[in-house]
Amino acid sequence: MAYRVLIVDDSPAMRSFVRRVMELSGFDLAVCFEAGDGGEALKVLNSEWVDAILTDINMPGMDGEELLRRLSADEVLRAIPAIVISTDATANRMDRLATLGARGYITKPFVPEDLRAVLERTLGDPNA
C-alpha cells in the first residue's frame, strides 16, 4: 500500500526525521505533505486526502491540540488516524489528547525504532 501522509511540526528538521523513520520502517510514501502548524495542516486537508497525520503539539499559530480538536469535530477528518509526536509528556496533556482522539503518542526524544513501533501499532505493519 502506498501511503499519503501529513507531517505537522514547526521544525523542518523534525519533519525530515519523522519522514525518514517512516520510509525506513517500510511505509511506501506516495505523498508526504508537510505543514508548520495546525492552520497550514487544515489548509492541506481542505483539498487533499491523507491516510495518516503525524503532529507535534507545541507550535506557533494553531497548536496540535487545537488541530486535533478541529479534526475530531469534523465527520470526515476524524476518521484519519492521528499520531502525536511531542516533547510534552505531562499526564495532563496526554489525558486530553486521548480524549481528543489521538490514536498514537510518542514523546521526544525517542529512538527511531520506537516511532516505528507506534506507527505499526496505529497503521499496521507495512511489511506484513
Binding site: 523513520v21 525506513l24 520502517s25 529512538v111 527511531p112 525504532e113 516505528r116
Partner: peptide
C-alpha cells in the same frame, strides 16, 4: 552502531 545504521538507512529489529 545506531548512528551508522541510521545513516545507512536501516533500523534495528
Amino acid at each position: 552502531l545506531r548512528k551508522i545504521l541510521w545513516k545507512s538507512g536501516v533500523l534495528l529489529h
